[in-house]
Amino acid sequence: MHRVNLYAAEGGLGLVVTGRTMPDLRLEVASGGRMLLRQQSRLVLLGKVHRWNYGVHVHRTGDYLSPLPPLRAHHARQVTPPGSAAWFDRWAHQFASWLDDADAGPLHNGFWILRPRRLPPYCLRGDLTTDYPDAYLDWFEGWNGVLPLSQLPDADAARVKAYRRQAREQVLPPILLWSVTGFDGYVLIDGYCRLAAALAEGIEPSVLVLAIGTDPEIGHDLLRQAAAHVELLNRVNEQTGVWGRADALRAADGLTRRFANACADLPEEQRTRAWPIRGGVRTWEQQAANVAHAWVAKLKE
């Protein structure tokens, strides 16, 4: 039985996932830059990295299902005040609970972080992938946007209209993104109608990002290293009269550089895990030919 334990993390909510070795929504890869996204037994996305790593071609099949239940209007209005730290925290806990119960999400064993993020405007504007079902994520031009796994609904769709009202009332719940390092961007997990509503109203939607995190013990070790660093600096300063001020400053500078390098080597978010495609290249080619023959033919041009 899988289980998700929650803890307070820096700037968000930490998740410790156990009992889930294989996620229901997972990235699979084969040689030659071939990748796919599978949700349970359904093929959701095919991907092929450009031969010179200039970007990645993607094709979506239309079989993606959000792992979160539909959000009701009364639920959105109960979470207040909108945009506050407490508001984000309540939604993070709610999303984490739904992801724990879901059979179609990306969680697998390990440490995760779920936190609000204010994205640069281009992420949900120019770098939002609106081409569907085929698209190209242009790394050469610096793509770092959002990739929907289904087509975004029209602004006049019934559910989008309901969310547009919530957007005007400033109670629109956040969208949920999954940070996927293999795309160098984000995958839209939940909030298709909410995103469409925000764009139609000309506002930036609130965002919660799910990413693989680090062991919280590493953070505790870093705090201990920081305390030791301060103690060493104090000892160096005490030796100023013995060594001379120039020598003491050089020693302090060296200690600070080493500590800064140690901090830089500890990224807050880890690489997205991928599993090998069973059957490798042959399986990828067969599935691509079955569901996206025209897309495959275009890649060979």
Rank of each mutant, 00 (worst) to 15 (best):
G105F: 13
L119P: 07
V58R: 02
P121G: 08
P120M: 09
L46T: 05
R60Y: 01
H108R: 13
L107T: 08
G110C: 08
L68I: 15
L99P: 02
L65R: 14
D127W: 11
D127R: 02
A102W: 12
R90L: 10
P67T: 01
V79L: 11
S84K: 08
I113E: 14
K48Q: 14
Y132L: 04
L68P: 11
L65T: 12
V79S: 05
P82H: 05
A102K: 10
Q78E: 15
H74M: 13
P82N: 05
G55F: 02
H74D: 15
H50C: 01
Q78P: 00
D63V: 03
F88I: 01
P106W: 09
V49L: 00
G47M: 03
L46V: 07
W112I: 05
T130H: 05
W87K: 01
S66K: 06
L137K: 02
T129Y: 02
W91Y: 00
V44D: 00
A104P: 10
W52C: 01
T130S: 12
Y136A: 03
P69W: 03
A73L: 14
R51L: 11
P82M: 04
L68Y: 05
Y54P: 00
P67L: 01
Y122N: 10
P70M: 01
D103M: 09
R115S: 06
H50F: 04
G62K: 08
A135H: 03
N109D: 15
R117A: 14
Y132E: 06
G126H: 13
N109G: 13
G105N: 11
D101W: 09
S41Q: 13
H74I: 11
H75N: 02
G33T: 11
A96L: 05
H93Y: 11
Y54Q: 11
P82V: 01
G47N: 01
Q40I: 05
P70D: 13
L124V: 13
H93D: 08
P81L: 02
T130N: 04
H59L: 09
S66W: 10
R60F: 10
G110M: 09
H93G: 12
H93R: 15
G126E: 14
T129Q: 12
L137R: 01
F88M: 01
S41C: 04
T61A: 00
R125N: 15
M35Y: 08
L71Q: 09
P106F: 12
G126K: 14
P81Q: 03
R34I: 06
S97G: 10
L137N: 06
R60H: 06
D131W: 06
L45P: 06
P70S: 12
R77C: 05
L114M: 09
Q78N: 13
E141P: 02
D100G: 09
L37R: 11
V79A: 06
L37A: 04
D63K: 13
G83F: 06
P121F: 03
L65M: 12
W98H: 04
S97V: 04
H74F: 14
Y64S: 01
P116D: 06
W87T: 01
W139D: 00
G105S: 13
G33Y: 07
T130D: 11
W112K: 11
D89N: 12
G110Q: 07
F95C: 00
S84Q: 08
G126R: 14
W139C: 00
F95M: 07
R125G: 12
A104E: 09
W87C: 05
S41A: 07
G47R: 09
Q94L: 14
Q94K: 03
V56W: 01
I113W: 10
V44A: 02
V49Y: 00
V58W: 02
P133A: 02
